[in-house]
Amino acid sequence: MPFSAVLLDLDGTLLDTIPDLANASNAMRRELGMSPLSQDTIASYVGKGTENLVQRTLSNNPEGTVPDSASVERGLEIFGRHYHTVNGEQAVLYPGVLEGLRAFQASGMKMAVVTNKPTEFTLPLLERSGLAGFFEHIVCGDTCARKKPDPMPLLHACELLQVNPEDALAIGDSVNDALAARAANIAVLAVPYGYNEGMDVRTLEVDDIVMSINEAAQWAFRN
């Protein structure tokens, strides 16, 4: 087996978090006098971190105006307050996640989460979902100076795990994961059930598309 570590995205890869993100986003909009958006619309805004989610959510308005920095800051405060309340409440594991993580663990591969979600939301979510114990390290959206699709978070995870990038495997659901892994010289798999900002994962430049984390483990063991 050529891989000694696996780096996993969180939202849209391990957990379906859209119901909670949509609830917090719409609570923010209502507090600001805006009408709610559909879960599918909000799902298309997920992937580049909370600030991007809030900015795009606030930009969806009848006037077509882009919020200024002060409006985004206010939105972030309101969103964060609501998301802290609902974080993990309706989030569910995707099929095959536990089986795949257990298979990776049994093989001796080191594991880390690499997500664009801020630490303040990531750690409670991993605890609440029962996944925290699988991972040696957690790299969040505010751990490094730059987020995915920049390679920095993946390379930082490799340093923490003490593995070379070429010996690691990344697994995600979006263009951010694919671009970051390619730039870091890390093999990358995509799952088709996540968000990918509303785009088809078949358009991504990845090593393969797998139907589940369990299938990703089997792919890793035979490649």
Rank of each mutant, 00 (worst) to 15 (best):
134 F>V: 08
62 P>Q: 12
180 A>Q: 04
97 V>A: 02
62 P>M: 08
75 G>N: 01
14 L>G: 08
49 G>L: 03
66 V>E: 09
215 E>F: 07
4 S>K: 15
113 V>C: 05
152 M>K: 08
118 P>Q: 02
153 P>H: 07
43 A>R: 02
46 V>W: 05
13 T>W: 08
186 I>K: 01
119 T>C: 05
182 R>Y: 11
32 L>I: 10
46 V>I: 15
89 E>R: 14
81 R>I: 08
76 L>P: 01
113 V>D: 04
114 V>E: 00
91 A>E: 10
133 G>C: 07
114 V>I: 05
177 D>R: 08
122 T>R: 00
28 M>K: 14
184 A>F: 07
183 A>V: 10
59 S>C: 12
53 L>W: 03
3 F>N: 14
62 P>K: 11
212 S>C: 14
159 E>P: 07
186 I>T: 04
149 P>W: 05
40 D>Y: 13
24 A>S: 08
168 A>M: 05
204 L>M: 13
27 A>G: 10
140 C>Q: 04
154 L>W: 02
2 P>E: 10
45 Y>A: 00
32 L>A: 08
56 R>V: 11
210 V>L: 07
64 G>N: 13
13 T>G: 06
183 A>E: 08
116 N>Y: 00
128 R>Q: 15
44 S>W: 04
213 I>C: 14
100 G>Q: 06
123 L>C: 01
43 A>G: 03
143 T>N: 03
187 A>M: 06
89 E>M: 14
146 R>W: 01
66 V>K: 09
166 E>D: 10
3 F>P: 13
52 N>F: 07
33 G>L: 12
167 D>M: 09
94 Y>S: 13
35 S>T: 15
161 L>Q: 10
18 I>Q: 01
209 I>E: 09
155 L>S: 06
121 F>W: 01
109 M>Q: 13
33 G>W: 11
199 M>I: 08
99 E>W: 04
128 R>K: 15
94 Y>W: 13
25 S>L: 03
223 N>K: 15
24 A>D: 01
117 K>H: 01
77 E>G: 05
116 N>E: 01
147 K>P: 01
218 Q>M: 13
72 V>T: 01
106 A>M: 11
5 A>G: 09
119 T>G: 02
139 V>G: 02
54 V>M: 06
35 S>F: 10
163 V>E: 08
80 G>S: 15
176 N>E: 04
22 A>Q: 00
168 A>G: 06
163 V>Y: 05
120 E>T: 04
66 V>F: 15
155 L>Q: 11
149 P>L: 06
171 I>R: 00
124 P>Q: 05
42 I>Y: 00
92 V>F: 05
38 S>H: 14
28 M>V: 13
137 H>L: 06
50 T>W: 04
142 D>V: 05
20 D>N: 00
74 R>E: 12
156 H>W: 13
75 G>V: 00
34 M>I: 11
144 C>S: 08
62 P>C: 06
91 A>Q: 09
159 E>Q: 14
24 A>I: 02
158 C>H: 08
6 V>T: 14
147 K>L: 02
191 V>Y: 01
181 A>R: 02
181 A>I: 12
110 K>I: 11
2 P>C: 06
195 Y>D: 02
193 Y>K: 07
69 S>Y: 03
167 D>W: 03
46 V>L: 07
66 V>Y: 15
214 N>P: 06
110 K>G: 10
71 S>W: 00
140 C>T: 15
